[in-house]
């Protein structure tokens, strides 16, 4: 094949321009952009959700752009009229912020094939919850021979200097505090009992981790033997051979809805809807429930199997009984004050 210098130049310039101004090539048909979370979330979504979406949409283009919830909100806020993201993924706290800021489109419930099959807690018309995150007690079975049964076990004197918690920067840490408050007569609106209880926990505290991920490291290093922990994170550690077990406390495991939202003004409304539909479908949820992902399904038509049936719940009825959902509207209203207070009071 023969290329003239001019042709080569033209091609090079075009390619260069496309590289420098990606907007040029996206202007006509931008692929669907889904901001998932980093790590195991991205892996699970890439392996299961994306292929299901492609199948459903006859190979529509999709791009995963993993980032934290707060970064998703920042990016969409900065370009409301022409958002760089079509579908957001949020923990309950940030989800409420995104909704309050008017960044999300209501979910077209009437059009949805799967929405009505979701368990009632997952039916949110600003963006349904295809996934639950579950927080319970995690412990090292090599050191702690009798499995803990209650949050109150953290206060046992035999765990002196062996307990780990995280600060309130994370959903996990915040949810844990609310549960402790409830245990001592408080609530989302009254956190005081939790602070009093954490004060009594100080002799047992070996570490206040800066984030839930750091808790995993502390388990691996034998720095802590028991802590509140995320079911999925623990399964990943377990798979790596770290001696760690998860148990749902008798007060109920804390469940967080992880919701997907269509971004307002997204040019890909229809594809965004299809992606969320795929995530709600029993096929995708059943695959994600299996090892290695072990993500708790929210579609009532998915029968519970495997590790989730063994450790968490056999069916949706039991799940509803064993899971505790928290009022994040009330939590968000006071969270900054709590973080401030935690900064000041919890020093070990």
């Amino acid at each position: 094949m023969d290329f003239s210098r001019r042709q080569l130049m033209q091609t090079a310039l075009t390619l260069g321009a496309m590289q420098a101004f990606p907007g040029l090539s996206y202007a006509q048909a931008r692929p669907l952009v889904f901001a998932t979370f980093t790590g195991s979330w991205e892996e699970a979504h890439k392996a299961v959700l994306v292929p299901a979406f492609r199948k459903m949409t006859d190979n529509a283009q999709i791009v995963l752009d993993p980032m934290l919830s707060v970064d998703q909100i920042a990016k969409v806020t900065a370009a409301r009229a022409n958002p760089p993201i079509d579908v957001m993924l949020h923990d309950p706290g940030p989800a409420l912020i995104a909704i309050a800021d008017g960044l999300v489109e209501p979910y077209p419930v009437a059009k949805s094939a799967y929405y009505k099959d979701l368990i009632s807690e997952a039916q949110v018309d600003t963006g349904p919850a295809p996934f639950f995150q579950v927080v319970g007690l995690t412990y090292n079975p090599e050191v702690i021979k009798t499995p803990p049964t209650s949050w109150a076990d953290l206060w046992k004197p035999e765990y002196k200097g062996r307990v780990g918690i995280t600060n309130l920067n994370s959903t996990l840490g915040t949810g844990f505090m609310v549960e402790i408050a409830k245990m001592h007569g408080g609530s989302e609106a009254n956190i005081d009992p939790a602070f009093a209880a954490i004060d009594k926990l100080k002799p047992n505290l070996a570490a206040v981790a800066a984030n839930p991920g750091a808790l995993a490291t502390l388990f691996q290093q034998g720095q802590i033997d028991i802590s509140p922990g995320n079911f999925n994170a623990i399964q990943i550690l377990k798979a790596k051979g770290v001696p760690v077990e998860f148990v749902a406390p008798k007060e109920g495991a804390i469940a967080f809805k992880t919701t997907m939202h269509i971004v307002k003004n997204s040019p890909n409304q229809e594809l965004a809807f299809k992606l969320i539909e795929a995530a709600l479908s029993p096929e995708v949820q059943a695959t994600l429930m299996a090892s290695p992902y072990l993500i708790v399904p929210t579609n009532g038509k998915v029968p519970m199997t495997g590790e989730i049936a063994k450790v968490l719940a056999k069916d949706t009825d039991e799940l509803k009984k064993k899971f505790v959902f928290q009022d994040w509207k009330a939590i968000n209203a006071q969270r900054s004050a709590w973080i401030e207070r935690f900064n000041r009071e919890i020093r070990i």
């Binding site: 909100i73 600060n167 070990i348």
Partner: peptide
């Protein structure tokens, strides 16, 4: 944050907390 942990608060973590978690 990794060696000091969550209970020791220094300026970078304080800043992160306010900007990222609290969106303030």
């Amino acid at each position: 944050s990794l060696v000091g942990g969550g209970q020791m608060l220094f300026m970078p973590m304080y800043l992160y907390q306010q900007a990222s978690t609290l969106q303030n």
